[in-house]
């Protein structure tokens, strides 16, 4: 059956996962380990986690709740200390957070007392300190336009809907021009209609910027639609990479074309089989 072909293909990929030419690798996770000490002894969340992500690649990470996906992402962001192994961006080991890794959080995390423009400028001012004020405003406004908020520059973040707030979050992350974009279930709190719209916005702006992206999601369709590769994590404790699935759809993609593609249901079945197994 066709799944055999797929399995063959993915098993090849797992073999290859750690062996991209170093010039192509943007983000490298090597023997990554995370341990939380508890009164009953150490709790190992992640162990021997190896993952390489290429330049201009969009990777989605899928796995059961509590398997350590978010822990892994916040370690990449530098918000959570590493217990073992290392994470490197373009060959340089990371030490703490920095604007080379933009993060879109699960909650929009905008400063509610600032306008959407001020929220984006907060990052832009930090990353482009030598640009003139007008240039920085132009950058912020450009990205707000890109996410469809040209009418809401001066609206207070607290006056925006959840979906619009997350759009500002996307603009804020892209506007600082990071090398790697980290997305922690950014659409998890939205209704499915808004979620679809935001996926379109995200992929549109990503097609233009081609920033290496790592995104956590619970949504199998979202994982397939957005990604070049879907990484499946085993359940914790001691979670690691369970399987990797290559998504061979052409870019730019439309939702319609993806849904009508013959391979779509094969991919979907593969992911669901993994999650239910």
């Amino acid at each position: 059956m066709s799944t055999n072909v797929l399995e063959h293909k993915t098993s090849n990929l797992i073999k290859d996962a750690g062996s991209f030419p170093s010039s192509e690798v943007m983000l490298d996770l090597k023997n990554l380990k995370k341990v939380y000490p508890t009164p009953k002894g150490d709790y190992v969340v992640l162990e021997d986690l190896n993952l390489q992500i290429k330049k201009e690649e969009f990777v989605t990470i899928i796995g059961h709740s509590g398997c350590g996906k978010t822990t892994m992402l916040s370690m990449i962001a530098g918000l959570n200390p590493i217990s073992g192994g290392y994470i490197s961006v373009l060959g340089k080991h990371i030490k703490g957070p920095g604007p080379d890794r933009g993060v879109i959080f699960q909650a929009p995390s905008l400063m509610p007392w600032m306008t959407s423009l001020q929220n984006v400028l907060l990052g832009v001012n930090q990353v482009f300190p030598h640009a003139t004020k007008a240039q920085r405003h132009d950058i912020a406004k450009y990205y707000l336009q890109k996410v469809g908020l040209e009418d809401a520059f001066n609206k207070k973040a607290s006056d925006l809907s959840q979906g619009m707030q997350q759009r500002v979050g996307i603009a804020r992350a892209f506007a600082i021009k990071p090398k790697v974009l980290l997305l922690d279930e950014p659409f998890g709190m939205l209704d499915s209609l808004t979620r679809g719209e935001l996926q379109d916005t995200l992929i549109e702006i990503w097609n233009k910027e081609k920033i290496t992206a790592v995104m956590i999601t619970h949504d199998v369709d979202e994982a397939i639609f957005l990604a070049d590769r879907v990484v499946m994590m085993t359940s914790g404790p001691k979670a690691k990479i369970g399987d990797v699935l290559d998504i061979d759809f052409e870019r730019p993609r439309t939702r319609k074309a993806v849904l009508e593609h013959d391979d779509y249901y094969k991919y979907r079945k593969h992911l669901i089989d993994f999650l239910e197994h």
């Binding site: 962001a77 530098g78 918000l79 703490g96 957070p97 920095g98 604007p99 890794r101 933009g102 993060v103 959080f105 909650a107 995390s109 400063m111 907060l122 990052g123 930090q126 990353v127 600082i176």
Partner: peptide
């Protein structure tokens, strides 16, 4: 809110 602090950290304010 920890989210705000995380934003500040990521942006290296």
């Amino acid at each position: 809110d920890k989210d705000y602090i995380n934003v500040a950290k990521v942006l290296k304010l």
